[in-house]
């Protein structure tokens, strides 16, 4: 059974069809990449998956459970978290506070209004684990707003990871990261635990082919090709619409 599946997913904006009959199937533990040229509807699909947008038709299943009508925050609790293409961080909080917030929320103490943040060892231990995994130890007391971009990008993923998702959606994680800070970011993504299923939405073909074990190509809002990286790379139709230009360049 696929861990994440969409059935006939469709989204219309007025007369424009941004996603048409998308049947995406992500296997448990997969490193699945969703690629496609600009305007292919990748962001629409991720917004549908996470509940920012409501589909006009179709269903979304997470671990066999229908989550089409679940609110964004409920999907997180059901085991799916995402990062954003453009950083969505809490600029006034420190990385430590931000991660502490997510961890408290996940451990069910988020609505606790009497205890001080971090008074429970379970919470602190998990904060430490996330901070170390995402190499944020040296900046954890700084205000997020003043962090270098690469660190902000790491924090972006750290916040989603701290939700302990079984499915993690990464929306162009490497976008805009300067070359010098890129390696650290990619190494962190490589090191994500194997049991976490990753759906990667990406532009960068090097990253996609080095990371993904399965690739879906989205064109004009519809799934075009779906298969192993070698097959996708070899597929002449994909080359024609998309990869050709990218690979030649």
């Amino acid at each position: 059974m696929p861990i994440l599946e969409t059935i006939g997913l469709e989204k219309r904006f007025g007369g424009i069809l941004a996603a048409a009959n998308v049947n995406l199937s992500v296997k448990k533990g997969a490193r699945h990449a969703l690629i496609g040229p600009n305007g292919a509807g990748k962001t629409t699909v991720i917004n549908l998956l996470t509940g920012v947008l409501r589909p006009t038709a179709g269903r979304i299943m997470l671990e066999g459970r229908d989550i089409t009508d679940a609110a964004p925050h409920e999907r997180v609790r059901l085991g799916m978290a995402r990062t954003f293409q453009i950083n969505q961080l809490f600029l006034d909080l420190t990385p430590l506070e931000s991660i502490g917030l997510v961890v408290s929320e996940r451990l069910g103490t988020g609505a606790d209004w009497w205890r001080v943040v971090g008074s429970k060892p379970a919470v602190t231990d998990e904060i430490v684990e996330v901070v170390e995994r995402f190499r944020l130890t040296d900046v954890m007391h700084e205000r997020t707003a003043i962090l270098p971009y690469g660190k902000q990008r790491l924090l972006e993923i750290a916040l989603a990871f701290a939700c302990r998702p079984r499915v993690l959606l990464l929306d162009e994680p490497a976008a805009g990261v300067p070359e010098a800070e890129r390696h650290e970011l990619l190494a962190t993504i490589e090191a994500l635990p194997a049991e976490v299923t990753v759906l990667l939405i990406e532009h960068d073909m090097d990253l996609v082919f080095s990371f993904a074990d399965r690739i879906s190509v989205l064109v004009n809002g519809a799934l075009f090709v779906d298969g192993a990286p070698e097959d996708v790379a070899r597929d002449p139709r994909v080359k024609a619409v998309y990869l050709g230009e990218e690979l030649d360049a």
Partner: peptide, 10 residues
């Protein structure tokens, strides 16, 4: 200063 307060700020 509680987790609830932190979530409000966020």
């Amino acid at each position: 200063y509680s987790p609830f307060g932190l979530s409000l700020r966020s």
